[in-house]
């Protein structure tokens, strides 16, 4: 069979016997590591919940960043933001697949979801906001370009510190996802740090907007370092990273960037916790509902649709 002689549309149909998904992964190759059993002595539900936490952080952050498509100030920055969103989506897909393999998707599979949907699609499109485990920083409004850069700087510094440690996880999937994520996140952090310095140490007006953006992101920072009971149990099992231990690294990055950017560390109080519960418990800010409405409406209106 000579591939070059085929009609290009035939090749598409051949690749996906039932057409392409109108949304979601459209990707059914087995990721070898995802199907590994939970390591011995590790609670399966805890591991699934932890994969959801880290996967939802990446998924919601990716969805937020993709809002910049067609809206960025310059084409280069639009491409940059889309690329960062894509990197995070890749991490999210592996982690949600892993959570699904450990059973997290089953309760969300209903008659309304097409039976053929992958676990990752069920988890992304058919879960309501109270079942999302992301930290509330990731769902926060990105505001203007300056605020977005502050947001990426904080998020990538934190996630880079987390993934750096997670490379040693006892769970092979987490370790593998982390090993891939580290160089990508380091690149994202460098990009955001460059812009924070450029805008902070730019004109009086850009400085003002950059400081305001950092101020707006600040209330979401303390939650990043609060350990959830699931995390605490998995830290003992050698699977998870203690978020409290990441603070020094994030503080170190910010202490390097903020003075060069002539920005001051904000003093705004933390938000995001209700009775001690935050995003990791499914207690979210109002913003997540709107993010999910955009992300999920097509899939829910037409479950299993193809084109």
């Amino acid at each position: 069979m000579n591939h070059t002689e085929e009609n290009v549309y035939d090749a598409l149909a051949e690749a996906d016997h039932e057409g392409r998904w109108a949304y979601g992964a459209g990707f059914d190759e087995t990721v070898v590591e995802v199907t590994a059993p939970a390591p011995e002595g590790v609670d399966r539900d805890d591991l699934a919940a932890y994969c959801l936490m880290l996967g939802d952080d990446a998924l919601v952050a990716s969805q937020r960043l993709s809002e910049w498509a067609t809206n960025a100030p310059e084409l280069e920055e639009e491409v940059a933001l889309a690329n960062i969103a894509l990197d995070l989506l890749g991490q999210a897909r592996m982690l949600l697949s892993r959570a699904g393999h450990l059973g997290a998707a089953e309760r969300f599979r209903t008659d309304a979801t097409a039976a053929a949907l992958s676990d990752e699609d069920v988890l992304a499109y058919f879960r309501d906001d109270r079942f999302f485990r992301n930290v509330t920083l990731t769902e926060a409004d990105l505001g203007d370009f300056g605020r977005t850069m502050a947001w990426i700087l904080v998020f990538s510094s934190w996630r880079l510190a987390l993934m750096t440690e997670l490379r040693g996880s006892a769970d092979p999937v987490l370790a593998a996802v982390a090993a891939k994520a580290v160089p990508e996140l380091a690149y994202q952090r460098e990009y955001a740090a460059g812009w924070v310095v450029r805008l902070g140490d730019g004109t009086a007006y850009s400085h003002e907007r950059m400081q305001a953006g950092l101020d707006d992101v600040w209330p979401f920072v303390p939650e990043l370092f609060l350990p959830h009971p699931v995390e605490t149990r998995l830290v003992e099992a050698g699977v998870a990273v203690d978020p409290a231990a990441l603070k020094a690294s994030v503080d170190g990055d910010l202490a390097q960037v903020l003075p060069v950017a002539t920005l001051t560390e904000p003093t705004r109080p933390a938000v995001g916790l209700v009775g001690g519960r935050g995003g990791r418990d499914g207690v979210h800010t109002e913003a997540l509902g709107r993010v999910l409405a955009v992300m999920q409406s097509l899939a829910r209106a037409h479950p299993g649709a193809t084109w």
């Binding site: 190759e29 087995t30 990721v31 070898v32 590591e33 592996m94 092979p172 999937v173 370790a175 593998a176 996802v177 090993a179 891939k180």
Partner: peptide, 9 residues
């Protein structure tokens, strides 16, 4: 069958 592996990255 096409399989995808993440390790080594």
């Amino acid at each position: 069958e096409v399989k995808v592996t993440l390790t080594p990255p």
